[in-house]
Design a binder for these strands. Structure first.
Lengths: 239, 239, 239, 239
DNA sequence: TATGAATGAGCTTTCATTCAT
DNA sequence: CATGAATGAAAGCTCATTCAT
């Protein structure tokens, strides 16, 4: 289930050097690119560095991916699109309870994404979408929309089977994604800043997130507490 | 409540243009910088453009802020630090129910951040923290840690007053922030991509987020009182 | 009458270095560019070399001319467009015989163009028009069409005043230009190849060209030598 | 009479593809090279494209022609040298009037050169001679000098036979070539620019050129129009 | 012999920062 | 103080040529 059994510098076995490399090239380049894009962002990653990390020259990189944008798209397709499709199938075929399904999907996502790299891609896109509209559109179509569809289907399944309350689906999905994103982005952006007071342990956050969420979703035997969500008068009483 | 009473190009009225301008300079530069940083990111914003937008020359900008990083820090201090302190005071002095307080804090955050700009700063930092460690550290100290403290205090208050269950505080705060961040980042990054299936209405997401969260937080002897969180009647009027 | 009283490296006199340079910059850059474009062609001229020859850095060149194409256009405007307009005025105001006018215009052209440089621009355009369509269009509009108009007007004047035979105007102009172009291009392209058998002396070619041309143009009391221009039957009788 | 019975991609018919191709290789490469050189120029033509157009790989091209310059030389030899020799023989053996001979030679040249391609080579050489001195020298020796000799011989023949006036031979040849070159270069360089006012019809220009030229050349029963070619006084009277 | 993967120098253009005026 | 001319290190991308297979 892990995404990255990718060793970092070649690996293979068979025949003569040249041949061996040739076959592995695209994957090696993609790995190098993933690592650097995640680390530095799209704009700040230099093509030459990607090439160097894959152990080839600039020219070779451009033989395989004719522009930095193409390279990025390939990275996204290779690393994200694939898994989204997998998950979609999983959801479609699942036969157990929706709670279990939700748990599983979220866990998988965290594993995959946490596996060193993929979270960084989310970061990149959020960061650079504005400056690279074509990339933004691509990512929207290739990643965001399918993911959203997937989760909406899941929530809807729960509602239809009477396992969840009748919550507004789209909004719930947004809420559901939020904390996952938060963890991942935070780790990628500030993982290096050692301030323990703010350190986060993904696993326990996940647990709390699921706990809170499920309490909210489950056909509530939940307690009343009268006016709970009413716009408190004091709200606007700020200066 | 709005954050930006900042007119965009000058503003005042009184005496000698030169003099007036000189006093207003720093603020005008900060405003220009905020706008551009948010729009393009830190690295992609050119100093010259900031200067031009503020109606001065490059040289002048460098006189006030001796480097782009310094400028950025000033923007953060001026626009974020201030509001965090305000909120901290608010929390400390609040006398009502913790639910109300939470609601208010979150609403305020959304307003401020949504007020056109501040969400963009979160975006920038996530994006560029890796490439500008000093900025990351600064932001961590100046914004993230205080915000975290603030919310932890709030949750703790709820627990201590017996209003919330005994949830793990730090993790809950992470969960609480997630969807807010999600909305804000998403809007900034993909607001331009017109794919309606994925469009989000911040207000309704907020409502659902609060509803789910509060159901999860409230000291549930989990007594099954139906209508629990009905903010608007219509919300729960599904089943 | 000379076009290039341009000394090659600055020259002026007045005030402080920085100031002095600033005013002269555009002209210095244009001179450097003209020289190099003529010598190497458009594509083969490196921006950096232009800058170096003008005694500035790459960046400075781009401050004045935001792209190599812009630089080229400026060179054309500064060096060719100007003279074409002058000549047009000259033709319009001339009061003498059309023969004299023709002689004068051609002589002037040869002087200007021969003055070391301008012929090279013709060469460049012929060479690179195919690869730089925008430049081609620009040159066509800015140089070729006006020149053509100018000469057509001249020939037409001669015909209307009964000085020239009723020759087809456009075609005659093409013929008229041909040898001038030939000399100029040849000098620029093969001037360096020392093969004397093919060496050309512009002045004497000019004389012969004019002699032949005028004999052809003058209202010929010419003996009709029967079939002169008729496609001789023998033409197709090639083996 | 056409120069290019060269089909564009293969052509023949007989036996084993591999074998057949191998024999045809050099010619196919030369054809591809001619087309591309003419279209883009020497420097701007990429070896790979030549190879691709000939249906082989880059490596193969380099096997036949060890450098781009060698390839170019081969193109010139194959396409120009040959025809010049033909014409030389023709001139030497001709028995008719020099006028007819001149007409025929010029017509042939226009046909050959106009036949899609060869004019482009003139263009290339004029354009790139400066940057590729060795090529320039080669072209001078291989094409220009022989052509010049050929035409000088022709003019001299006319004079010796009393058909032409005693014009200066070399200069006359230069004049004679000029308009031909003009047409050809112009077509190649600006054929794409659609500005009709400047459009040229080679055939009619040719006719006018010949008409004017022959009137100039023929032992003039020409009206003595006094001082015709004398430097008109007004000439130097420009400011 | 044919292939095409690999190289790397080289090109245009950008931009934070400096500093003479 | 303010200006904006000048700098020069990068960055993305291209292409002639080589050479292992």
């Amino acid at each position: 289930m892990s995404l990255n059994p990718l060793s970092n510098k070649v690996s293979s076995s068979r025949a003569g050097t040249r041949q061996r490399r040739k076959e592995a090239r695209p994957q090696e380049l993609l790995d190098a690119a993933l690592t650097l894009f995640v680390e530095r962002g799209f704009a700040a990653t230099r093509s030459e560095e990607v090439a160097a990390r894959a152990g080839v020259s600039k020219g070779t990189l451009y033989r395989y991916y004719p522009s930095k944008e193409d390279l990025f798209k390939a990275v996204v397709r290779e690393n994200l699109s694939v898994h989204i499709e997998d998950s979609a199938v999983q959801v479609a075929n699942f036969t157990g309870s929706s709670v279990d399904l939700l748990r599983q999907v979220m866990n998988d996502w965290l594993c995959e994404v946490g596996d060193r790299n993929l979270g960084g891609i989310c970061k990149i896109m959020l960061a650079e979408a504005g400056n690279f509209p074509e990339l933004a559109q691509f990512y929207m179509t290739e990643v965001i929309a399918p993911t959203n569809d997937l989760l909406c289907a899941l929530i809807r399944r729960g509602i239809e089977r009477g396992e969840f309350r009748e919550v507004p689906v789209a909004e719930t999905v947004t809420v559901l994604i939020g904390p996952m994103l938060h963890m991942v982005l935070f780790e990628h952006a500030f993982g290096a800043c050692k301030i323990q007071e703010v350190q986060i342990d993904p696993a326990s956050v996940m647990a709390v997130h699921l706990d809170l969420l499920l309490r909210g979703l489950l056909s509530s035997p939940v307690a009343p507490t009268t006016d709970l969500a009413a716009p408190s008068p004091s709200l606007s009483s700020r200066s």
